[in-house]
Write a protein that binds this DNA or RNA. Structure first.
Lengths: 131, 131
DNA sequence: ATCACAGTTGAACAGTTGTGCAAGTGTTCC
DNA sequence: GGAACACTTGCACAACTGTTCAACTGTGAT
């Protein structure tokens, strides 16, 4: 194991000291958890679905052409990271995006992924005007 | 396999039709790839490091107390998703955040993860004023 | 040209994660 | 109460991912 010693590529290493002051240790791990939950195609599709408004599990299952159980499992991951809200409405359970931060994250990534003409203006307005 | 049929929890399913019009199919997969790359503690630490300015691999290795090879492998994942820039400077190779979108994503997630008093104002200004 | 330095890459192994199935809640309606 | 509906959860298995080590590439100095 060849550990690295003495960079010498920068005047002084401003890195390790400053970073510690900027973000508290736990924040990075939690942020990583959020990204990990969003870092899956099927799960991200669910989030974009919810970006257009609340939906029940059955509704999402039909939209995705998937088993109810599968959707529920995906939602569990998103719930564990606090990305979605959940409320019961009679027989159904309605899911939605947890807050504006999540909608922003979603919008930002889609914009970056679309690179150019995403035509997400309608999507953004839909999610922003939600609360 | 119990496929779901007929939601009946919403007036009509506005979901599948609208979503297709909003984001092109490939965008979600690419966005998921971005999130997946950021969804790892060690890799995300690297990005926050780069959020404070460019750094060479050795510098990051010392800051993280890791092997050079390990850091390089992590950077490869970030590079494959277009999250970091790379340029040679003599013996060293300097990495940086690819663009403002990445910095925004990073900032947003850290803000959401810190929930309250992140004190990220300095971080944001550092990354925003970069170009 | 040779040596040291800086970084990359491929392969193998261990740990993690997504999915499908079966069995389990909780709610509404009769 | 009981049946039907709308989910949820635990488990097992396959597929993926991160790390490590060794070998390799490219740059700068002697």
């Amino acid at each position: 194991m060849t550990k690295a010693i003495d960079p010498s590529c920068a005047p002084q290493d401003h890195l390790s000291r400053q970073r510690a002051a900027l973000v508290q240790p736990g924040a990075i791990e939690r942020a990583a958890g959020i990204f990990r939950a969003m870092g899956d195609g099927p799960r991200l599709r669910l989030l974009t679905l919810l970006g257009q408004g609340e939906a029940c599990v059955t509704e999402m299952a039909t939209a995705e052409g998937e088993d109810l159980s599968t959707i529920s499992q995906r939602l569990r991951v998103l719930r564990n990271e606090g990305l979605v809200s959940r409320r019961r409405n009679g027989k159904h359970i309605l899911y939605g995006l947890a807050d504006q931060h999540v909608a922003d994250l979603l919008f930002n990534a889609l914009a970056h992924a679309s690179e150019g003409r995403p035509d997400l203006s309608r999507f953004r307005s839909l999610t922003i005007t939600k609360e």
